[in-house]
Design a binder for these strands. Structure first.
Lengths: 254, 254
DNA sequence: CCATCTTTGTGCACGCGTTCACAAAGACAT
DNA sequence: ATGTCTTTGTGAACGCGTGCACAAAGATGG
């Protein structure tokens, strides 16, 4: 996964397990699609298939929200959409600021997923004076100097960081000091925040590296299966023997 | 987190737990920074702090790779950088294709994190004929018609999908048919893939919704603590009572 | 009203991941 | 060589998440 929670160990927020919370948006998306097709009810089996999860898991997830299903029938789509939306806090409007309007920041500003579903891009902020005033996705970019004022004026509690890694912690500190308590971090850095502030990170290169690991493993297995006895992998040596790699080859920088 | 694994239940890939694999890139990043500062060794405590994890967890993670530390001293930075790089498969070159060169796709193509660390953008692919030939990040965009040929010619096994949701599954099918076995999906859809293919997803709106959930909870707790007795939350009603919401309010579309 | 059939909601068991706490290992000084 | 001190590596306990499997609930038909 492209993200991981920071801090806040495993506090069952008001009884709903973290793992369940992470799946609710998935269910909501599937339900919204059904709602648009005017489907009145769904069974846990159908909905689970649409969301790509196990049906027992889905039922257990919903059981944390309450008993919203009807046995022998299934779940009322519209009602469930509302309940999940309410649970996730999407019935209210969340103003969001995006800091760092480079390629990625601009892409985020243009991303439709922000506008819908209760999120509103309240402001775009960048440190480059040349960017100031220039409209991106129809919203004029403002300078970092005004960050605190923007946060307070708009009542922003969610911030998105899309700056270079070097600037991320500093931006984060200012956001938090100004009152932001939830941060979505796209910069490849570990952010330090005080208790009570939630950070979620999206890190492209981490995701790629995880894929590469599995890819390498697949290649190794395949080679082992294709060639020879199939018992001992021929490509990769097992861990534990420090033998073949005495000195350190060139490994790429940051 | 912005992602979640699909398929492949919990197979301890060659003995290394999935959770550990997901943290290796984090350690690698911290170690690379130390390496650039020419720091020769680190203790588990220091490195754990830099990576934002528990030191016991870090030591256990490293123990899956082998005994690379020296008691009383710590870990040799350069050596560990190499070992982790090798374990993640970053000592080889991974050609990657990006499909869907919109705002996000272009941002990804320009993202420095791809170029470094063993990943190379082999091709950019888009369905829009008007895009064909136009260079993005110095690489000419190619048309979707040539997808299969591009995959095969470049020996690509990792694909990145940055198309609209509607096109994602179709693109995914073609990538898989052409030989791609690892996919990083930025489109807000659940992808169906055959066994043996890894999918990781990065979903901005899911991340935001999870943040909104916690944000709402924090707001509720705060209101309860600030006002009145402090025992009963005043803002949000507890689950289970279907009372106040008889009919369904307007919930935003997709 | 009763029987049957579908689908939910959940008790239970299992496994992964995390954390504690400590013994073993080695560096370093004397 | 011996003792002390630091830091690793891991055994063990615990908690969360998952999935099975089934009883309870309600719809539906006769």
């Amino acid at each position: 996964m492209a993200t991981g929670r920071t801090h806040r160990p495993a506090t069952r927020s008001r009884g709903i397990p973290e793992a369940t919370v992470a799946r609710l948006p998935l269910y909501l998306r599937a339900l919204t699609a059904l709602s648009e097709r005017s489907v009145p009810t769904v069974s846990s089996e159908e909905l689970a298939a649409a969301a790509g999860v196990n049906s027992a898991k889905l039922r257990k997830d919903f059981s944390y929200l309450g008993s919203y299903g009807t046995r022998g029938v299934g779940y009322d789509v519209e009602y469930l959409v509302y309940q999940i939306s309410r649970e996730l806090g999407l019935t209210q409007d969340w103003p969001v600021v995006i800091v760092g309007i480079g390629n990625l920041g601009a892409a985020l500003a243009n991303y439709g997923g922000f506008a819908s579903r209760g999120f509103r891009v309240a402001a775009l902020i960048d440190a480059d004076p040349a960017m100031a005033g220039k409209p991106v996705a129809g919203i004029p970019v403002q300078h970092t100097d005004d960050l605190e004022k923007i946060i307070e004026d708009n009542g922003v509690s969610i911030g998105v960081i899309a700056t270079p890694a070097g600037a991320a912690q500093q931006v984060c500190d200012r956001l938090v000091a100004a009152g932001v308590t939830s941060i979505l971090n796209f910069a490849p850095t570990v952010l330090n925040v005080p208790d009570g502030v939630d950070v979620r990170k999206v890190d492209l290169s981490i995701e790629l590296q995880i894929l590469a690991f599995h890819e390498q493993r697949k290649a190794g297995e395949e080679a082992a299966a294709t060639e020879g006895t199939g018992a001992v992998p021929a490509v990769r040596d097992e861990s534990g023997d420090k033998g073949p790699d005495g000195d350190v080859p060139a490994v790429m920088p940051a």
